[in-house]
Computed example of a mutant assay.
Amino acid sequence: MTPDSRSAPPSKPRRTLALSAAAVTVIAAAAAGIGYLAADRAPHRNDKVDVELAGKPGSNPHPEVTRTSGVSRVKSDSPGDPVKIRPCPGLNPYGTHDCPESSIVSVADGTSVQMWCWTDSMAPDGYPADHKRWFYVIQAPGSPKPGEEGYVYSALIPVSEQIITPVCSAQRWLELHPPAPAPPDPEPDPANTPVPALPSPTPLPVAPTVKAPEEPTPATPTPPQPAKHTIREQSGSHGSPTFLNAHGAKGPGERIPAHTWVEVECRVLAPEIDSANPDGWWYRIATSPWSGGYYAVANTFMNGDTPGHTPATNTDWSVPEC
């Protein structure tokens, strides 16, 4: 009698193959799930705005900066904090004559400004060291202090708010602060106008007197005009910022690099900013490109001191007054 095949137990090799197939299916599904979770949880890399290119004209400006005019709005990097407009492009050295803390202006988030030019200095704390671009701005009409000027770090003006601006050059400063026109010549005073003299009577003819010929006197040469006297001064370890107007430090110009010798014409007393004191004197710089049109605080120069000399000499009194 043939045994019933349905009641016969399955062979062991078939069971092993069935279990192996199920295990492969479970492992593949688990691997797919892990791969999905890994891909889903992988951090997305967000590219930061390149503040080196933002607002810079040239062959390859930042593609998002396309405007060439209009106002821009500042944006704080910490919600609720104001944005600082500084007298110098950088944070260091603050508390000195050229960057006094008292001259920093704080404006509310979203304040409208007019971007004027850009320069490279140093990045604030918390930003990459090579992101060193600063913008010189003027508070726009409707802002808390319209016309107030200073530097703002480039990251505090969103790229969508920026306009393409030129570099901060001496010519750019003269466009912002043109020199005052020369005063017109004074009108003549009628009281000092000479009265024409009456004609004198015609004299009687007199016989001419014959004189012996005289030896010609040689002409005395005109002495040459002396050149304008200047005194050489050396800037200190932080250099010397320059300004068109020493009174209030208005119209910043090109900075004199550290340890640079320049010719100084004269000195002007302008103690309006605290850091120019205790003496309060400024030097008028004769060397190009300043060419007698810019001033620098006297205590930023060595004034004959050697490095490390104490107390420091704030003013070279051999420089004449302007």
Rank of each mutant, 00 (worst) to 15 (best):
P208V: 10
F135C: 07
D81Y: 12
A182W: 01
G70T: 08
C266M: 02
T193Q: 14
T260S: 07
G80Y: 10
H247V: 08
H97Q: 12
A258C: 01
A212E: 12
S11G: 15
T313D: 02
A23L: 04
G248H: 08
P158K: 10
W282S: 10
D189H: 02
M115W: 07
P178N: 08
V105S: 12
Q234L: 07
N192E: 11
S200P: 04
P224G: 06
S240F: 01
V107Q: 05
G280C: 00
P128V: 10
T165P: 03
L176T: 12
P141R: 00
C168M: 04
S103L: 13
A38T: 05
F135V: 02
R86H: 10
I273R: 13
R73E: 12
I157R: 04
K132F: 08
P196D: 00
P89T: 11
T300S: 09
A246G: 06
L37F: 12
P93V: 15
S106N: 03
W261K: 11
V113F: 02
G147F: 06
A38R: 15
P89F: 02
V268N: 06
P79T: 08
R14P: 06
S143G: 14
D109L: 08
R232E: 05
E272R: 07
M1Y: 08
V195D: 12
I138Y: 07
P221F: 00
P252W: 04
L174Q: 15
K132R: 15
P320Q: 01
P208F: 05
D120T: 00
K211F: 09
P87V: 03
V195E: 12
A123H: 02
P241M: 11
D125I: 14
T306F: 07
P205C: 00
A30R: 06
P218E: 04
T230Q: 01
S5E: 14
C117A: 12
K132T: 14
K145Q: 15
G292T: 04
T242A: 00
N245K: 06
T313E: 03
A28N: 02
P223A: 11
T111P: 02
A23Q: 03
T310D: 06
P289R: 03
V137Y: 01
D77V: 03
T68P: 00
P311S: 03
M115C: 05
A227D: 06
P213R: 13
R255S: 13
Q162M: 07
T111V: 07
I85R: 04
R284M: 13
E148R: 07
S112I: 00
N314G: 13
R267A: 09
G80I: 15
A31H: 01
Y136E: 11
P257I: 06
S235V: 00
C322K: 09
P57V: 13
S78Q: 15
A191G: 00
V206C: 02
W134C: 01
V26N: 02
R86V: 12
C117L: 05
M302R: 09
T165F: 04
H177F: 14
A296S: 15
A140I: 06
D189P: 05
G35S: 15
L198F: 09
E254T: 15
P13E: 11
